[in-house]
């Protein structure tokens, strides 16, 4: 009966010991604004459109899960507010006209600078 009383008390102190042991380890926070993690080349950040090697085959528009983020008529426009950055278009584009950039700071105050538009002659 005795250790049925002292056992829980021992466990309580063990809990305190664990939190103390963890407090001695160094902290793991990434100081974001000053130090940034470097992304490898597979990271799916902002999608960049290169006009030169685009042959306007509209395959990227057909492969994109959210149906009309990429519109190709007089303009080539990508609507970043709607894009889910899944990388399908970059993968299936035959001419590598779209590349992935490791830029993820895309927050903005108004919606229309989230839409990328480029003149297609």
């Amino acid at each position: 009966m005795i250790n049925s009383f002292f056992n829980p008390v021992k466990e309580l102190f063990r809990g305190l010991y664990i939190t103390a042991k963890n407090s001695l380890k160094d902290n793991v926070t990434l100081l974001y604004p000053e130090k940034k993690k470097n992304m490898n080349k597979f990271f799916r950040g902002k999608i960049q459109y290169i006009k030169e090697n685009c042959i306007k085959c509209k395959l990227c528009q057909r492969v994109c899960p959210s149906k009309n983020t990429i519109q190709i008529d007089k303009y080539y426009s990508i609507n970043y507010a709607q894009c889910i950055f899944c990388g399908n278009c970059v993968e299936y584009c035959p001419r590598q006209a779209l590349i992935l950039t490791p830029n993820y700071e895309l927050a903005s105050e108004n919606k229309n600078d989230l839409i990328f538009k480029e003149e297609l002659i």
């Binding site: 604004p33 993820y104 700071e105």
Partner: peptide, 19 residues
Amino acid sequence: IYLPMCPPKPESLIDALIK
């Protein structure tokens, strides 16, 4: 503040907070 990307990385949420 509009924050695209699905889901946005924790860093981009902190970047939105700074903006």
